[in-house]
Structures are given as structure tokens and as C-alpha cells.
Amino acid sequence: MIRTVLGDIAPEELGVCNAHDHLFLRSPLSPGQELDDPAAALAELNAFTALGGRSVAQWTPWGMGPRVADLPELSRRSGVHIISATGMHQAKHYRQAELRQATDLACLFIHELTTARPRAGMIKVAGAYHHLDDHARHVIAAAAEAHHATDAPIGVHLEAGTAALDVLHLLCDTHRVPAHRVILGHLHRFPDPRIHRQAAETGAFLAFDGPSRAHHGTDWLLLRSLTALADAGHAHRILLGGDTTTASARSTADGPGMPFLLSALRPRIEHELGPEIATAIFIDNPSHAFTANWRG
């Protein structure tokens, strides 16, 4: 089943999925650009739904203003299935008091996945630039423990798209998380086809989260990256998300926002890679990536 904020659903109910985005988000690094407006979030969901969108995975983890209590009502009003995240981002996105508060991360993650209301449907972790620092290793270890207790999928913020293979080694080889339960995010920011292919060969899912107004330097290579993976036989590992991280990036402001995935990217993928691959990327692959044999 896939765990949404309104309860567990069968994979075939997920529909067209924005596999990595944010309805609410705050960070000390982005003062004044917080996503903290329920009305604006609803407008973005409605715009996405009008183009055929059916589900959104919000990767905003604990401590970054996910406003989880607001998500069920947004889901009901928009008709969009929403997958919420627990987990923890890089230390720089938290105040020291918040970091001191989060003492037993595995227990926190398990609580938010199993007994909190609404329940999270995934765990979010993050690497550092081209390496894994001590904070990342600590959080990833806790996420692996929570995964083994619940079977929740783990989404990974790869800083500038780097350290994908290091993350997979730590999660899968050291902590024994099956690779198909891992979603690697931001790979379009480091468009190395060899690394993309190696990551896909492990069985992990590869999320190309863009275009995002904050990370647009490699948007022009997105179709090239998707084509290379499809040509190598890995179309079934690809996910796409909008990764809207600031208020100005919403479609209701001056950014591409969630609707761009379906208004612009999906037609291009259908034209260049074919409708079957587009269906895999937007419907079939997310239904596998977010499905879990939930325990608890």
C-alpha cells in the first residue's frame, strides 16, 4: 500500500504523480521565501489537478515547517493524494535548538510513520556535497533503522546531485536497505550519465526534480539524461518532480511550479521518448517507488 495523509491506498490509485515537491517549507537559509500559505498551496494543487495530476509527494521533513496537520484538508479539497515525509535534512537547515531536540531520530521517524496523525509515507534524508558528513551518516543510520521497522521508502536529497553511489553504498551495503526502497533526488543537477546508469543498475529509483527556479543550471540537459537512461533500459527507474522550494517558484507567482510537469515536460517526453515511457515515469514508477509492505 501507499501511505497518504488520508490513509493507505492501493498503488493503482496513485495516478499521475509529482514524485518530489513541497507544499510547505521553511529554512533559515531562505528567509522571506517560506512556503507557508495554505491558500497558495491549494491553488498550486488545483492547477496541477486541472492538467490531470492525481498525487504529490511532499518531501519536507521534520523541523522544516511541513504543516502536516494542514495536509489532509488540502488533499480533500483538491482531490490530490498527498504523501508526507518524516526524516531530517542537512544540519544547516535547522537551528541548534532543533538539532538538540532531535535526540532519538529513529524513534521520531517511526512515530511519524506509524502512530502520528496524519502518518508520513516516506523518510527524507540528505547527503553533503560530494561526500557524506557525520550528520548525514547519523541521519541515514536512523532512517535505515526506521525503514527496517516499517518498510518505508527513503528519499535522498543529493546535494547538487552528487555522492549518489556513496549514499547507495551506505544505505544498501552497510545498512541493508533494499535498493528499490531508495529514491535518489536531484540527479539532474549532476548530469553524469555513467553515474545515473550505475545507480539505476542497483535497482534504486532516480528522481529528476525540476525544473526548479533555484536549481535551473542543468534544466536543458534533463531530456538528454532521461533519454540516456531509457536507451540503457532503465526507464522503469525514473521519477519526475517539481521541487518547488520557494514562494516565487510557484506557478501562481513567477515560477514554473507544479503544473509545468504536465503542461510542458510530459508532452516533450511523450514526443521524444514515447507515450509508454511517459506513462511509466508519471504513473507506473511512482506507484512502485512509494509502495511499502507497511509494518505499524
Rank of each mutant, 00 (worst) to 15 (best):
L226R: 03
E98C: 00
I83M: 10
S78Y: 14
A57L: 12
R100C: 06
A144G: 08
V167W: 07
P118I: 11
P28Y: 15
P267K: 09
P28K: 13
G274A: 03
P61N: 13
G52F: 11
I140P: 00
L226C: 05
L170W: 10
T244V: 15
R76F: 13
T174N: 04
D243T: 09
A207K: 06
I123K: 00
S27N: 07
S248F: 15
L25V: 09
D104K: 00
T291D: 01
I183G: 04
I140E: 03
A278D: 10
P28N: 14
A85M: 02
L265K: 05
T162P: 04
T86F: 05
L99K: 09
E112D: 14
T103H: 06
F190H: 15
P118D: 14
S27L: 06
A120Q: 06
A47R: 13
T279Y: 12
H169I: 02
L132Y: 05
A85R: 00
A289T: 06
E272F: 14
L71E: 08
A136G: 08
A43H: 12
P66H: 11
L108C: 09
I110F: 00
T60S: 10
T162S: 15
G242L: 09
G233M: 07
A144D: 00
V68P: 01
P286L: 06
A152R: 02
A200Y: 06
S287M: 01
A143D: 00
V5F: 14
P267Y: 14
D8K: 10
R100L: 13
R197K: 08
T60E: 02
Q58L: 10
A249E: 12
G63C: 10
P28Q: 14
H130V: 08
R3L: 12
I123T: 02
L6G: 12
T202I: 04
H186D: 06
G210Q: 10
V182G: 04
L45W: 13
I183H: 06
E272N: 09
L262R: 04
D173V: 07
E276Y: 08
P286S: 07
F282N: 04
H180Q: 10
A230P: 03
S30P: 01
E270I: 03
S248T: 14
T279F: 10
I195Y: 10
D8I: 09
D254M: 09
T174L: 06
A40K: 13
A102L: 09
S78I: 11
P153V: 07
I281M: 01
K92Y: 13
T60G: 03
A289P: 02
I195R: 05
D254K: 07
Y129D: 14
V56L: 15
